[in-house]
Computed example of a mutant assay.
Amino acid sequence: MLRRSYLAGDFKQDLTLDPIFGYVMSKKENCLHLLQMALPELDIQEIVDISPQKPIDLNLFEKTSRLDVYAKDKQERVYDIEMQNLPVDFLTRRAWYYLRQLNIPKPGEDYDQVKASYVIFFCMFDPFDEDRAAYRFDFTEQKNHNLTIENVGHLLFFNAKGKDRSNITPQMSEFLDYLNGQTVKKPSKYIIQLNDDIKEYTRKPEWGEIMNQIALMREAIRQEAVVKMIESYREDFNLDDNKILSLLTKRYGDDFTKDELQEMIEQTK
């Protein structure tokens, strides 16, 4: 059951959509320029390895996860670049898990051979509620922030909605605006290239199937939210089925028919 707002044509075809982000950033020049904007102090000159949707095993007891974009530069520093549209529970813990996996030595490798790793999240929300465009976490001593230890792991979070952009470059600011759907009259060559690559990807034959798969997934998520709301209306507010149906119709009437909402109400009994 694909409702109106879940049809493939209704999706925004922009860089914030995971399949598009993975495809566009799997191109070395696009990824290189993004990393140069995010970490200008590193003077990154070349990407030698890149892989979208790279699988990682967090440990023997956890399910396999996938990095949106994995990259390695000429100095063998490694990067995980993630696009995060919605707030999720334990975002920082997930970031630490990814960082831990990137830092695991290879068999036979000494610890002094482990290269620096960077996990970078581009968020369409403020993960720390300080209205800043960028947050960076490194190891420092709690009282004396000038006292540091050798650190091979770094976490960065970019907030596309942040108004305080004093700690990012003008190029990164333009990129964050682009994620928000805002472009200037004369965009940079980089933004123009990103647009061209998005158009290239969305013209591919498999695009329609990808969008339908995402539509089904998002509909399932929305159905789960409706079920939880029904349960809350019953348990927390002691509402009867007619009142619940009325409230759901007002909130979800554009996504589900009245009969579909009634069916979900019946299924929760």
Results as ranks from 00 to 15, higher is better:
Leu39Cys: 14
Lys72Tyr: 05
Leu99His: 10
Tyr111Met: 11
Ser173Pro: 06
Lys269Ala: 06
Leu156Tyr: 11
Arg165Tyr: 09
Thr169Lys: 12
Ile149Cys: 04
Val114Ser: 07
Tyr98Ala: 00
Asp110Ser: 13
Pro55Ser: 13
Thr249Asp: 01
Leu42Thr: 06
Lys163Thr: 13
Gln101Trp: 10
Lys204Tyr: 05
Gln213Pro: 02
Met25Trp: 07
Phe21Leu: 06
Gly108His: 13
Val24Asn: 09
Leu15Arg: 10
Ile168Arg: 07
Glu231His: 06
Phe157Asp: 04
Lys163Met: 05
Glu224Phe: 06
Tyr70Leu: 10
Lys54His: 13
Tyr201Met: 14
Arg4Lys: 15
Gln142Thr: 15
Leu42Ser: 07
Thr64Gln: 14
Asn85Cys: 04
Asp129Thr: 11
Asn103Ser: 07
Lys63Trp: 02
Lys250Glu: 04
Lys74Pro: 00
Tyr190Leu: 09
Ala38Gly: 09
Met229Arg: 13
Glu29Ile: 11
Thr183Lys: 12
Tyr97Met: 02
Gln13Phe: 03
Asn180Trp: 02
Leu155Arg: 14
Asp49Ala: 14
Arg100Tyr: 04
Met37Asn: 04
Pro87Leu: 07
Tyr111Lys: 15
Glu130Met: 04
Leu155Pro: 12
Glu130Phe: 04
Lys258Ser: 03
Tyr233Val: 02
Gln101Met: 07
Leu248Val: 02
Ala133Met: 06
Leu17Cys: 05
Val48Cys: 04
Phe125Gly: 04
Asn180His: 06
Gln223Glu: 12
Asp254Tyr: 03
Tyr178Asp: 01
Leu156Asn: 12
Asn144Gln: 09
Asp131His: 12
Asn151Ala: 09
Leu155Lys: 15
Lys161Trp: 05
Gln101Thr: 12
Asn180Ile: 00
Glu150Pro: 05
Arg93Gly: 13
Phe139Asp: 10
Asp255Val: 00
Lys28Gln: 04
Pro52Cys: 11
Thr183Leu: 05
Asn212Thr: 10
Trp96Arg: 14
Asp196Gly: 12
Met229Gln: 13
Tyr111Ser: 11
Gly108Cys: 06
Glu174Ser: 06
Arg4Leu: 09
Phe139Gly: 07
Val152Ser: 15
Glu174Met: 11
Lys28Asp: 03
Met217Thr: 08
Pro52Met: 01
Met124Ile: 00
Ala225Glu: 05
Lys27Trp: 03
Asp126Ala: 08
Arg132Gln: 05
Asp57Val: 11
Gln182Met: 08
Leu39Phe: 13
Ala38Trp: 00
Tyr70Gln: 05
Phe61Ser: 14
